[in-house]
């Protein structure tokens, strides 16, 4: 094949990356801007980071978001881990197609629909059983775990597909009781997938604005809600600084998850 086409393709790829990254880089650049204007450069400064550190509304919201993310990611890892095992190790079972369809649907469902329907469920449950008596932390955790468990399940299922079932069978043949075989053989083998899944669920929870806005109650304002109401009013260099921190954290989290998934592939290849 001739050489020109790949080169043109690579140029297109480069443009694609520029499109994806240029806005983020400009955003980070202007977080170090001296001026209050987010779009005119006036010299280097870290004052917006200092102001961010003193903004209690943002810090309170960040703490709530982090605790919601930790709890919902842990819940999603348990539920998604089980769902991954169901898909990867239970073979054919009666409701398998319905199960897989139900697991996958939250991935594409428009957020306004998921958020509205879950809120109405919580309101109806409260009317019928008195639970949840107030909306906030618990309801956001439940909603977030519900949409992120699918991601965990897919990572775990992919990991199980790459494993040799003979390992688990050997444990069973050697007389290990099923629970012991699971705890001693399967669980350590899928542990990297569980950690990667947890990190993905954690990031998704931190990022969610729409679903949390629906299912929250008075007093529980997550970080994306504060950011959203702030940027609706206008641009602010503090938001640029916060955005730069978000990007840094995403790099760390995805780097860790990618490293874990890559490492397990290498181990599986050996």
């Amino acid at each position: 094949m001739n050489d020109r086409r790949p080169r043109r393709l690579l140029a297109w790829l480069g443009l694609g990356y520029a499109f994806l990254y240029a806005p983020i880089l400009v955003l980070i650049l202007f977080s170090f801007n001296e001026s209050r204007l987010v779009t005119v450069w006036a010299g280097f400064s870290t004052r917006w980071y200092a102001e961010l550190a003193r903004n209690e509304r943002i810090i309170d919201a960040a703490l709530l978001s982090l605790s919601v993310a930790v709890v919902s990611a842990s819940l999603a890892t348990v539920l998604g881990g089980l769902a991954g095992l169901a898909l990867g190790r239970c073979g054919r079972f009666p409701l398998r197609i319905a199960f897989a369809a139900l697991l996958i649907a939250p991935l594409v469902m428009p957020e306004v629909i998921t958020g509205l329907s879950q809120l109405l469920l919580f309101v109806t449950l409260e009317g019928a059983f008195g639970w949840p008596s107030e909306r906030g932390f618990a309801t956001i955790v439940i909603a977030h775990a519900t949409f992120s468990l699918a991601y965990v399940a897919l990572v775990v299922e992919a990991r199980l597909a790459g494993l040799d079932p003979a390992l688990e069978e050997a444990a069973a043949d050697l007389g290990a009781r099923p629970l012991w075989a699971f705890a001693g053989v399967t669980l350590p083998l899928i542990a990297p997938a569980l950690v990667a899944g947890w990190l993905l669920a954690f990031t998704l929870s931190l990022d969610d604005l729409v679903i949390a806005s629906f299912v929250t109650g008075p007093g529980a304002t997550t970080l994306p809600m504060v950011v959203f109401s702030s940027i609706r009013l206008g641009l602010s260099p503090q938001i640029n600084a916060l955005a730069a921190l978000f990007v840094l954290m995403a790099l760390l989290v995805v780097g860790a998850a990618g490293w874990l998934i890559g490492r397990q592939r290498r181990i599986a290849a050996v």
Partner: peptide, 30 residues
């Protein structure tokens, strides 16, 4: 990985980035 990475940075942040670029007083118009 480079294609997926922006997906994991905050969605709101990425939309905000375009707001700062596209406004009448935004970076592109400046």
């Amino acid at each position: 990985m480079l294609v997926v990475l922006p997906f994991w940075t905050s969605f709101l942040v990425r939309v905000y980035a375009w707001m700062t670029l596209l406004r009448p007083t935004g970076t592109i118009n400046q």
